[in-house]
Nucleic acid binder design. Structure first.
Lengths: 228, 228
DNA sequence: TTCGTATTTTACAATTCCTTAACAAGGTTA
DNA sequence: TAACCTTGTTAAGGAATTGTAAAATACGAA
């Protein structure tokens, strides 16, 4: 899943926290939604179906613990990861939080780096669940081990550099389908990045060298496809 | 859908931005409409039903966030993609923007290449929805695999060059229908392109050669049709 | 930092595809 | 029939796109 498709709901009554945490998560590329109290948390969670909810414990209207319980009642949010924000010294809330169905907690004061890496760790859990299906993809003589960034071709193991691996993975998601250059740039490089006109070709060339010329077909004026 | 049929509404209070961004999008072939504030954004969106709306966040009268919320209330604009323009440092608006129902954001300063590739990527999303038209079309002995840019004729696989493939695809969308030369030029070449009078004939000839003379019927003074 | 690898750019070469030009072959109209 | 119009055919030139090797740059680990 693409980072920008990951939705995080952030709920805290302090605007400062919303801004700082929101900023850090946004700049990591996540889609961030915010709420200011438990009521809003439940509303917005229903609306946006976030993958991760970060809940402050102490809030007016409805506190984090109660909000968490309500959220856990929603069947469509069963996959959602919920984590608390707790002030130091509120440690009791950890206990109550886990009882309420939280997955983790983050303690204030928040250090951006810690926050981000914690969020990444939590989301990794998410990927384990949904990405479990295609961690290994087989096409003809080729086996792609997504988690390990390696492949085997006719049993022979090949380690590919990241970009090459991602390009191959993309093409291999739909063998036969022609991926347009635009689409490849978007999916492998991300559309913020501007690269020169020969970059894709060079990577294709490397793949042809390593995996076999015939596996990659050029469709002039359009793009490339992977053929079995 | 043809590029020139895609409508983009661009809203910003700075004439410079309108000009630069508008120019870049126009030269890509899109139809561009502009507005200078949120009020105009809503008006023009209702009027033109654009496929994509690019909204500056900071604007007089009605800011981008509010405009976005108003736009999202319009049922006929539910398929419309909305993206924000944010100045660097305004990053918090990303957060509020997603809450308001935006799909993406583009940060200033705007690099034309990034802009264009981002717009393309967003519009691809649009096509995924409506372009759910069959990836495989069968007519008699002929099977057209649109995604793969290839066809089979009586089981025999043929790879066609792009223009030939597109021409065939067009004619095959409605077997029996006569496509006027104008229409063919518009759909396959895009009517901003000017080509000589024999170009279509030559491509038809190639198709006749590869697929069968009888499949393509000339209607003199009008155009061509594909017959089963 | 320094080294080694990965990635991108550059600068041509090679290739394919598209278009054109020129003429032929019909067909239509006056 | 002659003049005119449209389409068919061919081959060749040129435009556009891709392939390749090598150099330059960026990146990451030690």
């Amino acid at each position: 899943m693409n980072k920008k498709d990951i939705k995080i709901l952030l709920v805290d009554d302090e605007p400062d926290i919303l801004e700082i945490v929101g900023y850090n998560l946004s700049s990591e590329g996540y889609q961030v939604f915010t709420g200011e109290n438990g009521v809003e948390a439940v509303e917005k969670a229903k609306k946006h179906k976030p993958h991760l909810i970060i809940l402050d414990v102490m809030m007016p209207e409805m506190d984090g613990i109660e909000a968490c319980e309500r959220l856990r009642e929603q069947p469509e949010l069963s996959e959602t990861i919920i984590t608390f924000l707790t002030a130091r010294g509120e440690d009791y809330s950890q206990v109550a939080g886990f009882d309420a169905g939280a997955d983790d907690y983050i303690s204030k004061p928040i250090k951006p780096k810690v926050l981000v890496s914690k969020v990444k760790a939590l989301l990794r859990r998410l990927k384990d669940v949904e990405g479990a299906t295609d961690a290994v993809v087989k096409i003809g003589d080729l086996v792609i081990y997504k988690e390990e960034y390696k492949i085997t071709n006719k049993g022979e193991e090949i380690t590919l550099p990241r970009k090459e691996f991602e390009l191959l993975s993309l093409l291999a998601t739909k063998p036969g389908k022609v991926f347009k250059r635009d689409e490849i740039l978007d999916k492998v490089w991300g559309n913020e990045v501007v690269v020169g006109g020969r970059t894709i070709d060079v990577h294709i060339r490397k793949l042809r060298e390593k995996i076999g010329d015939k596996s990659f077909k050029t469709v002039k004026g359009v793009g490339y496809k992977f053929v079995d």
